[in-house]
């Protein structure tokens, strides 16, 4: 499960873009600034990699694992992660 401080979110959507398993989406409620903060999709696929937490420029996201048994990471379905040096075409 993720917790989002909605007033801090500026809607850059980097968390949605960078999530390696596409577990996040824009929510359908607007916050005070008039932007849509992220939320988990209905079928919860979060593997607790905590990339969204680390990459959020406004420190608005907190990843909390509901169950201690679920700590072990689910396999990543697609590799959205670019290598540090970028892709060499």
């Amino acid at each position: 499960m993720i917790e989002v401080r909605e007033d801090w979110c500026k809607g850059c959507n980097l968390c949605i873009e960078r999530c390696p398993i596409d577990a996040l989406e824009e929510s359908d409620v607007l916050n005070r600034r008039g932007i849509r903060p992220p939320r988990l999709k209905k079928e919860n696929e979060c593997n607790y990699c905590r990339l969204c937490e680390l990459i959020c420029p406004d420190l608005a996201i907190t990843v909390i694992s509901d169950d201690p048994d679920e700590e072990e990471k689910k396999p990543v379905k697609k590799t959205l992660l670019t290598p540090v040096g970028g892709k060499i075409k």
């Binding site: 007033d7 801090w8 500026k10 809607g11 850059c12 980097l14 680390l54 990459i55 959020c56 420029p57 406004d58 420190l59």
Partner: peptide, 25 residues
Amino acid sequence: LREGMWPTIFCNGCGHGVVLEYTFW
């Protein structure tokens, strides 16, 4: 954090907040 100062003045998509977070960790 000094929570009273938040949210930051940085623009949407700015990288400065990320650097701050890395420093915290």
